[in-house]
């Protein structure tokens, strides 16, 4: 491929005599980026849901990611680096996955008509995945840009103020459903696509995977809604002092001493 001239590639003969390996790489990368992002979202949900335990616990987890317990002071830039990595992964995944979406009215019409008469769960779930994936192009980009530029504004009050006084909660609410549906279906599809966990009986494995998929989706949606509700409540109560940073009592006492 490397030796192919632009002229040969330009007239569509670059694949002679050896088919391009790019489709294989794109397929692997699509699965890899999707898998990493879906697993990251599980971790992300656990981190943000620490607010349900206590403000101090959420503060501790946040500072941990900023290297506070290693360097003695927070470096929010570390968060920006992680966010940038996720952003790169996200853009790559979007770029790869968009190849699968219907790209014209004919394809849209074919799939919709097919889905309606077939009434086949996995066929319908793909449509849900396609719609939520399209929504995430926009929702995630906005969220990641905010996190990239203001990595230090994560914390019990900082996040709650953003959610409530900053009016981010509608975006987070829509994004929660889009992410959990998209990621859950995506992980299930990865498993059946590559034949993971298949031990002799593919049908039994798939049935178990489907049940696990729904159980995880419900669990993370419940956890996400509870978490968002908690931030909204804290933000509402803290609205008149929006912008004030959260400092745990233990740290305040330490500073006085």
């Amino acid at each position: 491929m490397a030796s192919t001239s632009p002229t040969i590639a330009g007239v569509g003969l670059a694949d002679r005599p050896r088919a391009s390996r790019v489709p294989a790489r794109l397929d692997l990368l699509q699965s890899f980026t999707g898998g990493v992002l879906a697993l990251f979202m599980w971790g992300h949900m656990f981190f943000v849901s620490t607010i349900l335990v206590s403000k101090d616990f959420m503060w501790t987890v946040t500072r941990m990611f900023e290297g506070y317990f290693i360097f003695g002071k927070p470096y929010p830039g570390i968060v920006s680096v992680i966010v940038f990595g996720i952003l790169v992964m996200f853009v790559a995944h979007a770029f790869l996955a968009v190849r699968k979406l219907p790209i014209n009215f004919r394809q849209w019409q074919m799939y919709r008509g097919h889905m309606k008469v077939m009434k086949h769960e996995d066929t319908t779930l793909w449509w849900v995945q396609a719609i939520t994936g399209f929504m995430l192009f926009f929702l995630v980009t906005v969220h990641l840009y905010q996190m990239l530029m203001h990595p230090g504004l994560i914390g019990p009050y900082e996040s709650a103020d953003r959610v409530w006084s900053g009016r981010w909660w509608p975006l987070y609410l829509v994004m929660l459903f889009a992410v959990e549906l998209h990621g859950g279906i995506g992980l299930y599809r990865l498993a059946v696509k590559w034949g993971w966990f298949e031990r002799g009986d593919a049908d039994a494995t798939r049935s178990a995977l489907k049940k696990a998929k729904w159980a995880l989706t419900v669990f993370f949606l419940a956890l996400g809604l509870a978490t968002l509700g908690a931030y909204m409540k804290i933000g509402y109560e803290h609205a008149d002092r929006a912008g004030e940073r959260y400092v745990p009592a233990s740290v305040q006492q330490g500073a006085v001493k």
């Binding site: 794109l26 996995d122 793909w126 059946v192």
Partner: peptide
């Protein structure tokens, strides 16, 4: 992408 990499694993 018209072969195995085009398959979206809908499994119908």
């Amino acid at each position: 992408d018209d072969g195995v990499f085009g398959c979206m694993s809908l499994l119908a």
